[in-house]
């Protein structure tokens, strides 16, 4: 017979928890009251909600900043192109002169923009 074998069943039963693979914290949790467990859970949920809110907030800021930057960049690009064209092709006086010539063409007295409507002023049933 093996001398190492413990034959005291009472002690064996008392020591049986030590033989299980149990996490010490779980032991603690199990020891907490129901209310305390609820509070712990609520804290976890709070952290998740706050974290999500902050994340969304940061996303929104990034979106607004990126949008305003892209609009400004587009405007700058268009303005730069127009300025380059003006400097290369026409000087400021030439530009003003061109505008005046266009206005003069529109103001030609022989070309009425809005002539009186060609309506029949003698609509009647008599012959």
């Amino acid at each position: 017979m093996n001398q190492d074998i413990e034959l005291n069943q009472t002690q064996f039963v008392a020591e049986s928890p030590l033989m299980d693979n149990i996490d010490p914290e779980e032991t603690l949790v199990d020891d907490l009251s129901v209310e305390e467990q609820k509070q712990l859970q609520q804290k976890k949920v709070k952290k998740i909600v706050i974290g999500s809110a902050v994340f969304l907030f940061i996303l929104l800021i990034i979106f607004i900043v990126a949008r305003s930057r892209s609009v400004r960049e587009d405007e700058e690009i268009v303005e730069n192109d127009e300025i380059k064209l003006t400097e290369i092709v026409v000087g400021p006086f030439n530009q003003r002169l061109l505008e005046l010539e266009n206005e003069l063409e529109i103001a030609d007295p022989n070309q009425e923009d809005l002539p009186f409507p060609p309506i029949n002023s003698e609509i009647t049933l008599d012959e």
Binding site: R96, L100, I106, A107, P109, E112, L114, F116
Partner: peptide, 22 residues
């Protein structure tokens, strides 16, 4: 025609004024 006459004069007057400034 009152309005048309005024507008015809106004168009040319404006060009005349701008030409003097230019």
């Amino acid at each position: 025609y009152q309005a048309l006459t005024l507008m015809s004069i106004g168009e040319l007057q404006t060009i005349h004024d701008k030409a003097i400034v230019l």
